[in-house]
Computed example of a mutant assay.
Amino acid sequence: MAQQHLDPTDPMAKAVTGEALAGYLRAQATEFLRALRLHRETGSATANGAEESVDAARALRHSARRISGSLHTFRPLLDATWSEEMRPELAWLSGTLGLEHACESRLERLLLALHRLSGSTAVPAQSVPAALVVDPAAGSRAAGAARAGGGGAPARAKPGVGAAPENSGGPAGRTVSPERGNLTVGAAKAGALLDRQLTLARTRAHSTALQALGSSRFHAVADKVAVLASEVPLTPAAPTTGLRPLAAAAEERLTDAVAVLPLITAGHPYNAQALVHGLSPDPSPHPQDGPWHQVRLLLRLHRYAREVLCEGDAPVDVRLLAAGQALNRHRDASEAAAAAAQAARTPRIAPATAYALGVLHADQRHEVEAARFAFQQAWQKQTVSTP
């Protein structure tokens, strides 16, 4: 058999040992500390300070996820006790810091969908983000308005969601039928209900994040990351041990998880099974979603392992990028559908509101199916060959 030689110009082909893992972890720990310092410096009430604080919190999440993912994939090369203590704390921090952003994105997604489904006059593209900005302090005001008004009219007007009055003409003088008018009113009240619920959830998530960043638990995590920036607890054999077998194992776990997905069903643009549990009173996540969420996490671990092998400079794999984007859309749509279903369970809401929320739930479940179809199309393309 002819001997195969690795291409020295290929960043994914050169020999990589535990020293590269140590360098990667030190770099991510440094990014974590830099983001933490920026977050503390920009914690002001000004608009620029708030925007920079959001960016710093996002950088904190990214670094925490990369450190935690690398500890998981390459745990045989790290001190076992330290690694097992560190990983859940980083996961807690990343999850806590991500809740506020998740609530904001979910509300924006649902309001845009309501606007699209209601058939009201389109809002100019450049004005959509400003119309959907949610004031973190608005949760208490919205809740107070809801208590005062009995949960009827919106606490504050939402441009683009049910903007036209019930008896008004549509765009370009189009006459609005009674059914369309009722749907518009239902969409407006559904948007107000979602606004109240998700703004309140975002406000609580913001408070939880601030409490977490000031807690002794977070300070303990930050202290460990500070130590990691200068000293990585590798095992004695790690500096001379290759990383490729462990990275290949992470890729194999991803491949095995994808193999059990119903890609044949996802290959059809419409999957009626997506709505089988749509009327279930059980608020638990949709039973079809779990394996897809797991694939998304495994894909992230595979990407981080590639970064370690390339010492933070991994070449762009278009196939993995497209697959990851599809899985992110899947996660966002499934969580938005769950939020719509949760809002529909609110007691004593008007029938038009419940109907609009039902249409919104079905729309987001079809978005889930579209994301699965996009993942199937991306994943079944030719695999990028790596050693």
Rank of each mutant, 00 (worst) to 15 (best):
P129D: 14
D55F: 07
D135N: 13
P315L: 02
S83N: 15
A336F: 00
S284F: 07
T184W: 14
P165A: 13
A113P: 03
E307F: 08
Y304C: 12
G181K: 01
Q294Y: 09
S94Q: 10
S207D: 15
L360I: 02
G98Q: 05
N182E: 14
A164Q: 14
A333N: 09
L301Y: 06
H286M: 06
R180D: 15
S94M: 09
Q288R: 08
A164N: 07
A336H: 02
P76M: 04
V176N: 10
S94N: 07
K14D: 15
D79T: 04
W92T: 07
H286P: 09
H277T: 11
K381Q: 14
F375L: 02
C310L: 07
R244P: 07
N271T: 12
A209P: 00
L111S: 00
A272S: 10
F373P: 05
E179Y: 04
A378F: 04
S120P: 08
G160M: 05
H39E: 12
L200K: 13
A143M: 13
T241F: 05
I349H: 07
G181A: 15
P387V: 03
G150A: 08
S207M: 09
S230Q: 12
A145G: 15
A354Q: 06
A142Y: 15
D289R: 05
K224H: 14
L193H: 04
A249Q: 10
R106N: 12
H361T: 11
A145L: 13
S68H: 11
P239F: 00
A187N: 03
E41R: 05
R141M: 12
P178H: 03
P281S: 05
L321I: 06
V295P: 05
A188F: 04
Y24R: 10
A229R: 01
S385G: 07
H268V: 13
L298T: 01
S44P: 06
F32N: 00
F32V: 05
L110C: 00
F218E: 00
L117P: 00
V128G: 05
F74M: 01
L97E: 01
S284N: 06
R217C: 06
E166T: 15
A122E: 05
Y304P: 11
L234S: 03
F218K: 02
D10S: 03
A326M: 00
A13L: 06
A146T: 11
R87A: 15
Q380S: 10
L360T: 04
A56D: 02
A15K: 03
H39T: 04
L25V: 02
Q376H: 10
A259H: 10
V258Q: 01
A113G: 04
L357P: 03
H115A: 14
P165S: 03
A356I: 02
D10G: 00
Q377L: 13
S334L: 09
A354H: 03
Q3R: 09
S83G: 14
L36D: 15
Y24A: 03
T241P: 06
T73E: 15
S168G: 10
R202E: 15
D282F: 10
T9F: 09
A338W: 13
V185T: 10
A257G: 09
G214C: 04
P154I: 13
A378Y: 03
Q4V: 08
T175I: 12
R147V: 14
R58H: 09
G162Y: 01
R300G: 11
A137T: 13
H366A: 10
P287A: 02
T235H: 06
V295M: 02
G312W: 13
R141F: 11
L213S: 01
A339V: 02
A35W: 00
P283E: 09
